[in-house]
Amino acid sequence: NRMHLLCPMNTSPHVNPHKSGHGIWEEFSHSFTPAVREVVEFAKRIPGFRDLSQHDQVSLLKAGTFEVLVVRFASLFDVKDRTVKFLGGNKYSVETLQAMGAGDFLTSMMDFSDKLMGLGLSEEEMSLFTAVVLISADRSGIENVNSVEALQETLIRHLRGLITKNHPNESAIFTKLLLRLPDLRSLNNMHSEQLLAFKVHP
């Protein structure tokens, strides 16, 4: 009855029965570290990010990395095929993952990915949206809220301009995109609960 780390950032959903909880955790950490580094590199390229205090840069990344990864890896969740692709390259059906213990969180991730991918955004639009996800002045621990807020507003303005330019006949896309932000917060909270459950019962 061991807990599984049913996260596509892992190479596979299967757990080596001979590995300790700590060993499983270390292997998992090894899998997601490159992706986290890429999020940091992405953040550095957001104009204005490096002008924020180092404290606020860390706070934004700590709070937002999971949400950025959800956006970045939304395509791993295939709603049509009802499969999830793990970093090891294999796809696993929703039914298989549910049999291994995946519950509402998986369903919510599939729903989110379906809604986001359904908007058909370009790479540039997705990248700007990802920047908006990361630069949020209401994250906990921000010391200079005004600076983060100013950067956030600039990014939202650019995103709106880009979406309006690229989709002149689809004015609802920008609104739909902003509605994904609270979805991401909700997924972030669910993810934290999942991590807590694993930490308590590895």
């Binding site: 950490s29 840069q57 860390v58 990344l61 700590k62 990395t65 991590l195 308590v200």
Partner: peptide
Amino acid sequence: FSDPASNLGLEDIIRKALMGNLEERPE
């Protein structure tokens, strides 16, 4: 467990990745 990011070791990875860039900056 109130700080899942720290529990994941995320903060350490983030700080190192950020610091790497700072070290590359010219004096």
